[in-house]
C-alpha cells in the first residue's frame, strides 16, 4: 500500500498529464462520431454572450452585403408571387396549405461560423426558448447551410454542410436520381454528391437540390451546380463535385426550418424498423 502511494506521489505530474490527456482524447473521439450529445459545445450562455457582443460590432460591416442578399430574395419572392397561378384572384387563399402548412420557419442570426476546420459548426442565436430542437434544417435564401445539432435555452449549434459527419439527402433537379451530399474537408466552395446511380443523366452545370426523403429539409431547396463528375471505382455510381450556391464563408442571417410532421414520420419509420 505504502509503495502504491509512493508511486502515485512520485509520478503525480505524469499521472495528471495522462488523466487530462485522456479526458481530452475521449472528448475528441466523441466529437468525431455523429450526434453523440456533447458536453463541450458553443451553445451555452458564456460563449453565446461573448459571440453576441462581438457579433453586434461585426454586423455593421456586413450591412451592405446583407441588404443586397435581402433585396435579391425579395425580388425572387415577388416573381413567385406575380407568376403564381392564383395571382389574378387576390381573394383566394388556399386554406389547405395556409392553415396546415407543413413547415415552420424561424429566422436566426449567425454568431459564429467556421469553414477552415474539417468539422465545422455554426452558432445561432435561437434556442429551446424559440422551440428550436435537434435535427431542424438550416438554410439561407440561396441554399442549405446545415442541421441543428445541440441547443441550449437561447443558443444552438448547427452542423455545417462543411463537416465530414454531415450526410444530406440530395437529388438532381431535372430527374429524381438521389445521392448523399458529403464533404471531403478541402474547399469551402465545393461539396461532393456520392452514390448517384450510373443511369442518371449527369451534365455539368445541372442543379442539385435537396431530396426531401428525410424529415429535415423540404424537397427542392437549392444546393449547388455540378462542377465536374467521375465514375466511382466500383463503376456503378457517379461521384459529383458540387459548386455551392451559398458562399459558406459569408453567412449572416439564416432560416431554421421545422417540419411539423417530423414526429409522425419518425414514429412511422421506427415502426417499420422494429
Amino acid at each position: 500500500m505504502q509503495q502504491i502511494f509512493n508511486f502515485v506521489i512520485r509520478n503525480k505530474t505524469f499521472l495528471l498529464f495522462l488523466l487530462l490527456f485522456s479526458i481530452a482524447l475521449t472528448l475528441t473521439i466523441q466529437s468525431h462520431s455523429y450526434h453523440r450529445s456533447k458536453f463541450i459545445n458553443s451553445a451555452n450562455g458564456l460563449t453565446g454572450g461573448v459571440y453576441g457582443t462581438f457579433n453586434s460590432i461585426d454586423q455593421y460591416f456586413n450591412l451592405k452585403d446583407q441588404n443586397i442578399i435581402l433585396a435579391e430574395e425579395n425580388k425572387k419572392l415577388r416573381e413567385q408571387l406575380f407568376n403564381s397561378v392564383n395571382s389574378s384572384d387576390s381573394s383566394y387563399i388556399d386554406t389547405t396549405t395556409y392553415s396546415q402548412g407543413k413547415y415552420r420557419v424561424i429566422t436566426a442570426a449567425v454568431y459564429k461560423n467556421s469553414y477552415s476546420l474539417t468539422n465545422n459548426y455554426l452558432t445561432l442565436n435561437k434556442g429551446k426558448n424559440d422551440s428550436v430542437k435537434q435535427d431542424f434544417g438550416v438554410i439561407t435564401s440561396k441554399g442549405i447551410v446545415g442541421i441543428i445539432d445541440n441547443t441550449s435555452n437561447n443558443y444552438s449549434t448547427a452542423l455545417s454542410i462543411l463537416n465530414k459527419k454531415s450526410q444530406i439527402n440530395a437529388k438532381l433537379k431535372s430527374t429524381n436520381h438521389i445521392g448523399s451530399l458529403t464533404w471531403d474537408g478541402k474547399s469551402p466552395e465545393f461539396t461532393q454528391l456520392i452514390d448517384v446511380s450510373n443511369f442518371a443523366p449527369v451534365k455539368i452545370g445541372d442543379t442539385i437540390v435537396t431530396g426531401g426523403q428525410s424529415a429535415i429539409f423540404p424537397r427542392g431547396i437549392g444546393i449547388g451546380t455540378i462542377d465536374s463528375f467521375e465514375t466511382d471505382i466500383s463503376g456503378d455510381t457517379y461521384n459529383i463535385k458540387v459548386k455551392l450556391f451559398n458562399d459558406m464563408t459569408n453567412v449572416g442571417t439564416v432560416y431554421i426550418i421545422e417540419n411539423l410532421d417530423r414526429t409522425e414520420i419518425k414514429t412511422l419509420e421506427a415502426s417499420i424498423n422494429e
Partner: peptide, 20 residues
Amino acid sequence: VDMFSDSGGVHAAAAVCLAY
C-alpha cells in the same frame, strides 16, 4: 478554446501535451 470553436477536445489535448 474548444468550447468556443466546437472542436471536441483537440485544443485541450494539444495544450496539455505542450505544458507537459
